[in-house]
Nucleic acid binder design. Sequence first.
RNA 1: UCGGGGAUGGUGUAAUUGGCAACACAGCUGGUUCUGGUCCAGUCGUUGGGGGUUCGAGUCCUCCUCCCCGAACCA
Length: 582
Amino acid sequence: MSQNNKKSLVDEEGSEARGRTDFIRTLVESDVQSGRFDGRVQTRFPPEPNGYLHIGHAKAICLNFLLAEESNGICKLRFDDTNPETEDERYVEAILEDLRWLGFSPDDIHHSSDYFPQLYEWAEHLIQAGLAYVDDQDSATISKQRGGFGKAGVISPFRSRSIAENLDLFRRMKDGEFPEGSRVLRALIDMQNENMQLRDPIMYRIRTEEHHRTGRDWAIYPTYDWAHGQGDAIEGVTHSLCSLEFSDNRALYEWFLDNLPLNRPAPYQTEFARLELTHTVTSKRKLKELVDRADIDGWDDPRLPTLKALRRRGYPPSAIRDFCSFVGVSRTNSRHAIELLESFVRTELNAKAQRRMAVLRPLKLIITNWPADGNGQPVIEYRSLMNNPENEADGTRQAPFSGELWIEDDDYRQEPPPKYFRLSPGREVRLRGGYLVTCTGDVRDDDGNITEVHCTYDPLTAGGAAPDGRKVKATIHWVEANHALDGAVALYERLFTAEVPGEKTGEPIDDLNPASRELITGCKFEPELGELPNDDVVQFERLGYFAVDENDPRLFHRTVGLRDEWAKLQQRQTGGPQGARG
RNA sequence: UCGGGGAUGGUGUAAUUGGCAACACAGCUGGUUCUGGUCCAGUCGUUGGGGGUUCGAGUCCUCCUCCCCGAACCA
């Protein structure tokens, strides 16, 4: 086909690193080239406001919005609110907020409920055309008559009603004359079709529940199938993208649109595989089950894959977007390693996050030859530290230093294991940005617990470099003891121990990681922490990236840890759990 | 059981549409480094299986196997 030539031309001119293409982009591109929809591209993101957005939605959001952007098209947001029993306004607000946070702004916002009048009119149109009928049977009967896989359905005794009777009954359904569950409107298609979706699907059901937007204006509500494609058509959507499980619904999507008096080319549906991650779940039902448990803090518990949780945990929206673009879109069911997402988070944060020092499990370090002032107190000296070695422009900060410091508990071992480079008697290490110190021993209490580590420092090594050029194998972080801020830190591990939660028993809960959250109190932070820009994520050197809690300025959530060669080494040596830094 | 969809390294995605299997994550080895971080280099696959077409197959044909989705008045 001659389209190919044109396509490669476009590609050559196209933006540099865009590069990535996929079957959907190829499809859209070819529609643009062929002039289908007059070259227009319009997509939509259609969440049902019955829950919070999660990482899986992020993929659909990125796909729809980016695709539109790349094609000079538009992407609208549509709340698919056709079921008054499950939907709520608070979800509408939350979805709006999450979308904004992710960095997308819809070209317009609609609700399926906006189309109730049009949908009703079209339903009468189908009745008039003999393509829809009112069925008086109950749910169980209809379900039984639908047949099964490889088993034909049975025709409803009400299928042959006259148009006039159907019209009358349908109007009375709308007027609220009948109780819930007593009647439905069905499309008259084919009870023998091997595609179950086409066996006279339900278009309307009677609901007495109040709708969060239309109140009690309506007694009947359209089903997903009867609302979705029509909403697309009304809005002028060209490419309706949804997940794989709707593949069989496509035939119905097309049937409805084919039988309606549309004034422009009908949109068409294309399915893609939804995003799933290892060690977590994204189904609304399973998520809710977790939230209902006492040990999960709510929909924004940082261990959850909801967008609000990821936000609270410090995941940069750009990292989520990059991740979604990178994993691309295909029709293969798969589950991406959560490590990949984390690597995008690290890449982003490594470049952007300012460095600070924090000691999670403090151990006192005394520099025995450090000078004292007139009152016998250690002299305080200010050391200059780089805010981010990856980004000179971030400048430096001053941190107090003295002969009385907090260091990390596991940065000292009286008897160092093999390959242990940190403090141990006789060993010299660098205190980051401070001095080279040599360990002289430790002090213990009556129970034999280490209470202090003693060192001497080399006054010639201010800043951390030795004039004689000698090297040390380790640089450790510290916080000056008299200026330290106290606080707490929450460490997070995988929510589920299994890569595929519930794979063995069918119940994800069975694979819940009992140690998914560890709250450490009594942490020591460098004073500069108090002057951090709001909701910024910092790197605590050698520990990982941390986000301040929105309500408690002295509580930090670990976004993600740093890669930790030492922990890996230890794990291999002992076969045991990771080091204290986790 | 019927219909629809899928299968490429440890993982996920790609392959100019029939032309030397690429990228990333993870792993491993080494180097650099005032973070055991970052960075750099190297290493790790005969594309689910059989048969066929072809000079040439991940790509086309055929048979088989395995996996996912579908029988809500949910979306």
